[in-house]
Simulated scan of single mutants.
Amino acid sequence: MKTTVVAVINQKGGTGKTTTTINLGSALSKLGKKVLLIDLDPQSNLSYSLAVANPDGTLADVLLGTAAIKDILVETGGMWVAPGSNDLVDVEISLVTQPEREKFLKQILAEVKGFDYVLIDCPPSLSVLTLNALTAAHEVLIPLQMEVLTLQGLDQIMNTISKVKKAFNPKLKIKGIVVVMFDSRRKLSQEVLEYLQENVKEKIFKSHIRLNVKLAEAPSFGKSVLDYDASSNGAKDYKALAEEIAGA
C-alpha cells in the first residue's frame, strides 16, 4: 500500500487548516481509505475537535523519543489521530538546536504502515514544526480564504515550499489550493478567486468549501461535519473535495 503524506499548510491562523484536515480525512475514510491525522499544532485544535482528550501519549512524546507513534494513535470517527499538545511548544524549542532538526517527523512517519493518507495539520506559522511537516510530506494542500491579504500570504507559502524543495525535499509537490469559507454573494470573493485562476499556475480544486454554520458547530460535538450533519453544505463540499483528490 502506497501512503500519501499531505501537509495542510497556511501560516495564518483561522484559515480552515484544521477544519480541512478533519473533514477531508473523514470524507476520504468514507470513500474506504485508511486515514491518519497528525496534530502538529501546539494549540491541538484538531485533537479537541475530535474529542481526543487526555490521550495516553501525544506527538510531543514521540518527537522527544519517549514513545513510539504506534502507541499514541487514537481511533475516532473512522480515522486514526496522532494527538497534539501544548508540549509541542517545548519540543520545537529543543528541536532548534538538534542536527537534522527538519527530519524528525519524516523518520517517525517511516514507522507508520497501512494508511492510504496521512494528513498533517500544521501550525499557523512557518516554524521548525512546519518545516518538519514539509520535509516529511509528499504533497502540500493550501486552504485559502478569498480575501485580499490571502494573495500576500500565498506568495510567502510558495516561497517557503520552494526553499524546502531545494534544501530538504526535492520531490515535494503542491497538490493544490482549496478555496474555503467561500461566499458567492460577496463580490470580493469572486474577484479574488478570478485573480487566482488567472495568475496562479497551481491547481485550484473545483470543489469550493462554502461558508457553513455546521462546520463551525461540529467540533463542539467532537465530530467531523460528515458525522455531525451529512446533509449539510459543509459535508457535501468536503465529500466532493475528497472525491476530487482521491480521483486525481
Score class of each variant (00 low, 15 high):
Pro55Met: 01
Gly16Met: 04
Lys239Gln: 13
Pro170Arg: 01
Asn159Leu: 12
Gly32Leu: 03
Ala240Glu: 14
Leu141Ile: 04
Pro83Phe: 02
Lys173Arg: 13
Glu202Lys: 09
Val164Ile: 09
Pro42Ser: 00
Ser220Asp: 12
Glu92Gln: 13
Val35Ile: 07
Gly114Val: 07
Asp229Leu: 12
Leu188Val: 13
Val118Phe: 11
Ala136Thr: 06
Lys239Asp: 14
Leu131Trp: 07
Asp227Gln: 12
Leu188Trp: 08
Leu196Cys: 08
Arg101Ala: 03
Lys214Val: 11
Ala240Gly: 05
Asn54Gly: 01
Glu92Gly: 10
Ile69Met: 10
Gln11Trp: 06
Val148Tyr: 15
Leu149Thr: 14
Lys173Ala: 09
Glu194Asp: 15
Ile174Ser: 03
Thr18Arg: 08
Phe104Ser: 11
Val179Asp: 07
Ile209Arg: 00
Ser184Met: 02
Ser47Tyr: 02
Val179Gly: 00
Thr58Ala: 01
Ala242Phe: 06
Tyr195Gln: 09
Ala235Val: 08
Lys239Ala: 15
Phe104His: 14
Thr160Asn: 09
Thr150Asn: 10
Lys33Phe: 03
Val118Arg: 05
Ile209Tyr: 01
Ser85Ala: 01
Gly84Glu: 00
Lys165His: 03
Tyr238Ser: 08
Ala248Thr: 12
Pro170Thr: 02
Leu215Asn: 02
Val96Glu: 11
Val5Met: 03
Pro219Ser: 04
Ala242Glu: 04
Cys122Gln: 08
Ile120His: 12
Gly78His: 01
Phe115Lys: 02
Leu50Phe: 01
Ile161Asn: 02
Gln145Arg: 12
Ser184Thr: 08
Gln11Asn: 14
Gln190Val: 13
Asp229Trp: 10
Gly32Tyr: 04
Met181Arg: 12
Leu131Asn: 05
Leu154Gly: 05
Lys214His: 12
Ile72Ala: 00
Ala27Thr: 05
Gly57Lys: 03
Lys187Asn: 13
Leu172Cys: 04
Val6Ala: 01
Leu28Cys: 03
Asp56Ile: 11
Pro55Thr: 01
Leu226Trp: 12
Gly32His: 06
Asp87Cys: 00
Gln152Ser: 10
Leu36Arg: 03
Leu64Asn: 15
Leu149Arg: 12
His208Ile: 13
Asp227Ser: 13
Arg210Phe: 05
Leu188Pro: 11
Ile245Ser: 02
Glu191Met: 09
Val89Asp: 05
Gly153Phe: 08
Gly234Asn: 09
Met158Thr: 08
Lys214Glu: 12
Thr160His: 06
Val179Pro: 03
